[in-house]
């Protein structure tokens, strides 16, 4: 299967590459629009900061291009946030695939640490990324900004408040957590994406 991982100025895209290789897929890490367009599945990963990555995507013509992709696309972490309308991080206009804001976590108690880092549970799972067996399972999160629960939410996690752990609209899927770092549960979610 031809899987493209979009290469841009975001960190930690190699762990997605490794995770797919463990599933027997040899992905291509590329910013070549032709290669990405012809891939059967596209992964839009990312650890980093919203404004500098969006600026990079716009300068390289990747913003319109990603919006126009027709095959299944999976955004991960920052990738998911960049697929929303606007991020409070750097007051950044994003890709607008999901009509939602990205907000910063505001602690309510001393124990509410930001970033939200570690293993947390998925609830109200739906969409073809998640079977019912994934309800209540733990996945790995590292983030300071979140997407509120909205009409595209297909999995919810509670930290300070309930937020979107995953989104889905048409051919666009996205997870706030890192499936590539979420052990067996993450592998199952990645496999479900590859099987779409």
């Amino acid at each position: 299967m031809k899987v493209a991982i979009i290469k841009y100025n975001a960190g930690n895209i190699y762990s997605v590459d490794y995770a797919l290789k463990r599933l027997g897929v040899e992905p291509v890490i590329t910013d070549d629009l032709g290669v990405i367009r012809n891939a059967e599945k596209v992964i839009f990963p990312g650890v980093g900061e919203a404004l500098s990555t969006m600026t990079y995507l716009r300068e390289h013509g990747l913003d319109d291009f990603i919006r126009g992709l027709m095959q299944p696309v999976l955004g991960i972490c920052l990738g998911m946030q960049l697929m929303c309308m606007h991020s409070e991080e750097g007051d950044t206009p994003c890709l607008g695939i999901f009509d939602s804001e990205v907000k910063r976590f505001i602690p309510k108690r001393h124990e509410d640490k930001v970033p939200h880092m570690g293993w947390n549970t998925l609830t109200d799972v739906k969409s073809r990324l998640f079977g019912p067996e994934l309800e209540g399972k733990f996945t790995y999160f590292v983030h300071s900004y979140y997407v509120p629960v909205n009409e595209f939410t297909v999995a919810t996690t509670d930290y300070i408040l309930p937020f979107s752990a995953a989104l889905h609209k048409d051919n666009f899927y996205a997870t706030q957590f890192h499936p590539e770092k979420s052990g067996d549960v993450g592998e199952l979610i990645l496999r479900n994406f590859l099987n779409l």
């Binding site: 762990s15 490794y18 463990r22 770092k181 979420s182």
Partner: peptide, 8 residues
């Protein structure tokens, strides 16, 4: 380690 292990 990165290639073989799926936790952080």
């Amino acid at each position: 380690v990165a290639a073989n292990i799926s936790i952080p």
